[in-house]
Amino acid sequence: MKAWFLRSLKKGIVTSSFPSGKNEALSPWATLPMRDMSGEVDCPVDAIQDDRVDSGKCISCGICFPQFKPSMQIPQINMVRVEKSLSKSMKLYLFDSGTCGACNLEIMALNSPQYDMNRLGLSFTNTPRQADAIMITGVLTEGMIAPLKAAIDSMASPKIVFAVGACAISGGLMGKSISEITGLDVQVPGCPPDPFVIVAAIEKARGRI
């Protein structure tokens, strides 16, 4: 016990002040690519139209490099509504509809000391019944349709449906979007989204930024 205590003192404060302060890190290809030089690009998910990149489709593959380069800016978060009643406290339920695993781990990273989700009034819950928000990751898979519908139905209002990552938003490289069976309140782009992008999306959805 003493060892842990001393270690914590030695380490000091590691938690980010984001979103009131600046984000300390951002994975380059988790940001939206922007045109840097002329030349044709064969985007595997047709995310590029007239030099504009569709954030919901982009799978961060970098095939558009060097014509496109990472913008290094937190991408625009598409959302249909803001739920201010959840600004003080919000419980999140992670729902894996068909991921490669990366989006799940990036959401779970919010629990690490660098992000310390509790300081923002956020916590994970083990059941959708107690959740204010459902964070859906991955493509729509046949086997998860019924559990997803049941999970969303079991949530009390007000509730927010997050689609986290390109797979959930657009189907990405290999499947269908979850929008085929449910409305999406917030779209968090990336493949996977950087944890700072996820924090930004959550805070916007609660009207805190």
Partner: peptide, 10 residues
């Protein structure tokens, strides 16, 4: 992420 451009080497 900083070195390779992607946190999972995509």
């Amino acid at each position: 992420g900083k070195t390779f451009g992607h946190r999972y080497f995509f």
